[in-house]
Design a protein around this nucleic acid. Structure first.
Ligand SMILES: [Zn+2]
Ligand SMILES: [Zn+2]
Ligand SMILES: [Zn+2]
Ligand SMILES: [Zn+2]
Lengths: 193, 193
DNA sequence: ATCAAGGATGTTATAATATAACATCACACT
DNA sequence: AGTGTGATGTTATATTATAACATCCTTGAT
């Protein structure tokens, strides 16, 4: 009963989706987990979590702060960072290291490693379980004699949704915008021998 | 002739190694690549690269700046960041996102994705090619319909060398220090049903 | 020789991200 | 009432990174 991410393409990338469901599921799960764990999902923490779940995009701490202040109360960075620390500890959000930003976790009820697909175009982040990848990765660790305490994969690229909407654009305009500034992998074409 | 990382445990984690070789190889490769590519490995850039290769630890930009200034000349952040930008562009160093730090690339002559094993204990970073992981990862991308332009895996843990030296410690003191503050993966033990 | 262009560096200022330290508050337990 | 704990408020500062503009230097064209 735990096949939360059954569809192969990600949860939200192919079509419009009912984001209210994402939000209510995330908040319900958060409430539940915090009760079970005996930790406090205080109003501030809840509010920050809601702000993060405003979209599937990764959010910057100071953007959260600004939005938090708009809603009502004065706040300082510490307020936000403390809430973020709590949410991360509880596995309710993830920190996206390559962006210095934060994104809601869509499967916080499970232990899981991270595979984050980060779209350079729409900035949405899709978290996928990817057990195969993680298994192979674990093998690699044992080979290296490395004891891993956390692993995270962050991939930058273009999500399916953006590819599709770009295709539509192109069929109208004849342009291929996405290739601008985006070359697959780095520029290593000179192998010395 | 390109089996640079033949040994299974990483290049430097098991035993003392001749780090001068690491450095001279890195610098030679850098020189060569820059000549072939027609880009300038200026004195500043070379000096920053040398400072980074001072060890296998990831280095912070402002630590580099301090060390750079010690050596001789006054410098401002921009000097260092510009050198870092250049070195990253040329694939001579990597940015470790989870640490906001930088580490020398030990295989800059090849196109490669990143698997960084980051030791929480000694702070050394081991870069491994891990082609299997990358292959499985690519599969995962296709399944998600994601076009990846860069991928990086950063794993935090304890390297072999530190495990071994810790074992020695323990056989003397009877303590198990490494477990302090380090629990394997996160604290998800409550599965709701 | 002079000029123009590009790349590298110098310099000043500031932006963006994050934490330290200490005071206060609120609630639970005694 | 007294005490302890966790959460929050508040002030200040640390850390990381970039913007903007001036200068310099080489190279190549006029
Ligand atoms: Zn959604
Ligand atoms: Zn997208
Ligand atoms: Zn070495
Ligand atoms: Zn180590």
């Amino acid at each position: 009963m735990t096949t939360l991410t059954a569809a192969l393409p990600n949860i939200f990338s192919t079509l419009e989706h009912d984001h209210k469901k994402c939000v209510s599921k995330a908040l319900d799960t958060a409430q539940h987990l915090c009760v079970v764990r005996g930790v406090q999902l205080t109003p501030i923490r809840l509010q920050v979590l809601e702000l993060i779940w405003d979209s599937h995009k990764a959010v910057k701490a100071y953007d959260l702060l600004d939005r938090f202040k708009l809603q009502q109360q004065a706040a300082k960075p510490a307020t936000i960072y403390r809430a973020l620390d709590f949410l991360i500890e509880q596995g309710l959000i993830h920190r996206v290291e390559s962006l210095n930003a934060f994104v809601g976790c869509n499967c916080s009820e499970h232990q899981h490693e991270l595979l984050l697909l980060i779209c350079k175009h729409c900035h949405e982040v899709d978290e996928r379980p990817a057990p195969k990848v993680m298994a192979v990765l674990s093998e690699e660790f044992s080979q290296a004699g490395f004891i891993a305490y956390s692993k995270a994969i962050e991939a930058q690229g273009i999500c399916l949704k953006c590819q599709q909407s770009q295709d539509e654009q192109n069929s109208l305009t004849g342009r291929t915008d996405l290739s601008v500034n985006l070359k697959p992998y780095s520029v290593f074409d000179l192998s010395q021998d």
